[in-house]
Design a protein around this nucleic acid. Sequence first.
DNA 1: GGGGCGTTTGTCACCGGCCACAACATCGAA
DNA 2: TTCGATGTTGTGGCCGGTGACAAACGCCCC
Lengths: 338, 338
Amino acid sequence: MGKVTSLDVAEKAGVSRSAVSRVFTPGASVSASTREKVRKAAAALGYRPNVLARSLNTGRSRIVGLVVAYLENQFYPEAIERLSKTLQAKGYHVLVFMASNDNKATQSVIDELLDYQVDAIIAASVGLSSDLTNRCEDLGIPIVLFNRHQYDSQLTSVASDNIAGGRKLAEFLVAGGHQRVAHIAGWEGASTQIDREAGFLEGLRNANLPLFAREIGNFDFETAKEAARRMFTAAEKPDAVFVANDHMAFAVMDVLRFELRLRVPEDISVVGYDDVAIAHWPSYDLTTVRQPANRMVTATTNALFARLENPAIPARQIVLEGPLMIRGSARKPKEGKA
Amino acid sequence: MGKVTSLDVAEKAGVSRSAVSRVFTPGASVSASTREKVRKAAAALGYRPNVLARSLNTGRSRIVGLVVAYLENQFYPEAIERLSKTLQAKGYHVLVFMASNDNKATQSVIDELLDYQVDAIIAASVGLSSDLTNRCEDLGIPIVLFNRHQYDSQLTSVASDNIAGGRKLAEFLVAGGHQRVAHIAGWEGASTQIDREAGFLEGLRNANLPLFAREIGNFDFETAKEAARRMFTAAEKPDAVFVANDHMAFAVMDVLRFELRLRVPEDISVVGYDDVAIAHWPSYDLTTVRQPANRMVTATTNALFARLENPAIPARQIVLEGPLMIRGSARKPKEGKA
DNA sequence: GGGGCGTTTGTCACCGGCCACAACATCGAA
DNA sequence: TTCGATGTTGTGGCCGGTGACAAACGCCCC
């Protein structure tokens, strides 16, 4: 059992423990000769400082807690991979916690995170009660919401401009001459859902078009399928549907094509939201609004580090616009119109 | 800045620090009355023990390091979600590290993991040099390889029976009457690739069928597309192809159908490996071998905890058989044949 | 050769818990 | 009543580092 401590290195190098510590602390004052001695002894013994022990008195663990609800939607693995790599490059590491949308469970998950003395928390697609966030703020632990806003409290958050995105989709469908436009919603507690739908409805309203039908898919694949079945077995069907994210849009397209034998986009136009990798696979070729995952990740880590360095920085709601990706799953406007 | 320590609680409850500690240590001897006093004081102050400080002298951090190469292939997010939840339920948490297949990078990643005093390491789809694993063993930190074997060293590992799986696929294609059977390989350094191909070739050999063509896709979506383009623009095309995982198989099917206007399975049969969620989406309806992700996760955590409790347990290579999922992407054998 | 200055070094207390140990209280049995 | 057994409590050292502080060192210059 070869645990090597700074004392072992100190003895071998003939110096004190703190000399060893200083060699491994950037910006500490050590002479070249001791540094060399310590380096050699450390290498010979295979010594590496114990991060946990260090964090005990520096008060910084260099651990960032990441709370995430589900990885089924491809958007999150993509984002997590980027987040983790970015943080890794800056010497931080990610402690992952799976949470449900259940508030009580989230509470205990955050508690456990705090037990680990994380330096900061990133909450992806999870709602946080305000007493929870207050507790974190009180401890000086910055929280950043990823791909979600909080309406009641002023939290730092990063999301795409879901209202504008929803509006763009409505305008696109309207320009394409659709008359009976429907919506399959995600989980109604999510700000992404609320904003996307609000923008979408606004876009329809501007064109004096009512929402023709509405079902709920809860951001879940199977639930979305059922929603699609209900929506498209009615006597009069929509001629276009905005599905609240790509993940559900694929489910809807499958039901339309393979169960109901309807053609997309000839019979029904389908648009989604996120622009995950599968969206541009030719089998789906989904018209959607891109969530700029890498810019969102960059903004998230920047906001995190900014608050880590200066806790006084006020909370900001960062909103990034993403482009409409026009592909083949929805009828396009005729020439001349934009 | 409301950091609450055991001392604060002790003072408020009128007891010693160790009394507080005992209340939060299962199996310690405390009277009912002190326990009650401490509980109340702790609740009033919002006290929770500092896991990092605790780990310093118990020597157990309750952190499990998870090294993973890429999340693009849907199989990994699925597995990670399960792994994380299972470990969470047992009071452990997952520190995620992204690694490449580059050996040097993996080395430094593992070093960083060790800095965090992780109790165990799970390496998913990553190769580990033997000096690395030796170092971990030496420190008494169990390593479990997930979805990968190591040929040179005796490491605990969990994988599906890739040889049998490959053989099943070959037998199925042979029974379907295919004559020109090809293979698009993944990354050739991966045991999954080596085993799947070995089993597949064995199956072909048993039927006296040579491998008609072979390309390399490196488990990467775009690389697989290029491989498919090369393979299927030749004068004489294969009539069946085994793509080394589902993720690449989707890429291949897209190229066949949308670029080369070939029909699947009428012109070419495609089979994959993994049975990720997308495989049963009707757009692909992919015949594949299921990797039993939940059983693999259970086996992984079981092996982990077994070695954590008793380090003397010898390393085991756990191999789980997964069924052939017969769907519509490959021509099926005629009636009467199995 | 001695004084002054900046750098390097070791000493020691501390981070927040846990645990071995000894002290103490309580209680039953001799 | 006394003794020992049992159960509970506080003391103090330790886990593996860091950092304030002051001592020791080297160096330059007078």
